[in-house]
Simulated scan of single mutants.
Amino acid sequence: MSDDLHRSPVAFTPNIEVRADDEAETIQGLNEQLRLIQETTAKDYGTAVRGVHAKGHAIVKGKLEVLAGLAPSFAQGLFSAPGSYDALLRFSTLPGDILEDSISVPRGLAVKLFGVPGDRLPGSEADTTQDFILVNGPAFAAPTPKAFLANLKMLAKTTDTGEGLKKGLSAVLQTVDAALETVGIQSPTIQTLGGAPNTHPLSETYYTQVPLRHGSYIAKISVAPVSPNLTELTGIKVDTSGRPDALREDMGRELIEQDSVWELRVQLCTDLDKMPVEDSSVVWDEEASPYVAVARLTVPAQLGWQHGLSEQQEKAVSFSPWHGLAAHQPIGGVNRARKPTYEMSTQFRGQHNGCPVHELRSLAELPTQGMTID
């Protein structure tokens, strides 16, 4: 058995983070690019949407149950004792413009938990929520904020370009990506630009990709499907032909039929050299440190998307890894860059739409009536 399997988890200390000298300048550049994307899409749609992950495919209510009997290194933060929390889940796709689903790009899952006690992160002191932002890949597409800025500039340039061109490019890139995978190569750049395989979003495992504090330790988090109605979708491709909202439709068909269950899992950092916090592109070795289930996330059978209402709910809510407990502080340059950029994106939506986005305190504050959409 490898010595790596016997390593103790690395203790969290503030000095594990190392800021680049030009980090503030890079964050300013990220804000500028996100603002450019949002200004472009707001002009096109007549309403402001998110700078990234603009298109939602399902927004549903659920419950998170923290498991009993966890080992001390996993029983940290909100997972330190068994408990139950109301949850809101939003499934989305990456771009800042709202595209037809034949343009296949990485998928996202945002989870908001309510009524979470404990010391809060800066800017979140008055809240009682805990957010986790996840994507269907184990590592971030860029190692540093500066590389993230380069990727965002690429996305900004493709915002508002012809959708027909994007469809053609996506089809080509999906073929290229599939060919690369047959020889064991994955290209985050190709997938970000529309080459991600068009598999069913409910079959995917989602990852924070970037590290978080886990109480006394450092971790990444995943959300993995475990109920049979979800696992049987593994590898299933979504038919998007003539169906601009195919993901929304197929997810809705599954979510309304029966309860859906995921496990929330934690992977502890056991080696800072092999599991760095300042290079977000590194996949942490699951053999050296496996993901361990710490909670179950259940979504009772319900509508995944209600036209008119779901759009209003999406406008009313914002997600950020910096909404939460100090025990789950986001770590690393990409996470540090996310705090001001997410705040700017939310403020832009609120200002442009004439309705500031306030952090919800409970599921009861989510809109229950929507506007009529033809």
Rank of each mutant, 00 (worst) to 15 (best):
L70T: 06
L99H: 06
Q33C: 13
F74Y: 15
L36T: 10
L109Q: 06
D86F: 07
Q38C: 07
A24S: 14
P82F: 11
N15I: 09
R50N: 13
V60I: 15
G77P: 12
T47A: 15
N31V: 15
L30R: 03
A24P: 03
I103E: 04
S104Q: 06
K61L: 10
Q28N: 09
D44I: 09
A75K: 08
A42E: 04
R35N: 02
V52R: 00
F91K: 00
D21H: 06
Q28M: 11
A68D: 15
L113S: 00
A20P: 11
P95G: 05
D21L: 14
D97T: 02
A71I: 06
I27M: 08
K55C: 06
S102R: 08
A24W: 02
A81N: 10
V18G: 07
V60G: 03
T41S: 01
G83L: 05
I98A: 01
V60C: 05
T26M: 06
Q33I: 09
Q28D: 14
E32N: 07
I16V: 15
T47M: 14
Q33D: 09
P106Q: 05
A71M: 10
G115V: 04
L89N: 03
V111W: 05
I103C: 03
Q33F: 01
H53Q: 11
A110V: 02
G29Q: 12
Q38N: 08
K61T: 14
R19C: 11
R50F: 12
K55D: 05
D101V: 03
L78I: 10
L36K: 09
D86Y: 00
Q33G: 01
P14W: 12
D22P: 04
H57Y: 10
I103N: 00
A81H: 13
E17N: 12
G51R: 04
Q33S: 11
G115N: 05
D22E: 13
F79C: 11
A68E: 11
R50M: 13
Q33A: 15
V52A: 06
T26I: 15
P14L: 13
F91M: 05
T41C: 03
F114I: 07
D101L: 01
G69Q: 13
I59G: 06
F114G: 01
G56N: 11
E17P: 06
F79K: 05
A71S: 13
G51Y: 03
A75C: 10
E32H: 14
Q38R: 07
P82N: 09
N15R: 09
I103Q: 02
I59W: 00
E23H: 14
T26Y: 07
Q38P: 06
S73L: 10
D86L: 02
L89Y: 00
N31I: 14
I103L: 02
D101P: 03
L99W: 02
N15C: 11
L34P: 01
L113A: 01
K112Q: 09
S92I: 04
A20S: 15
G96R: 00
L89W: 03
L78W: 14
I98T: 06
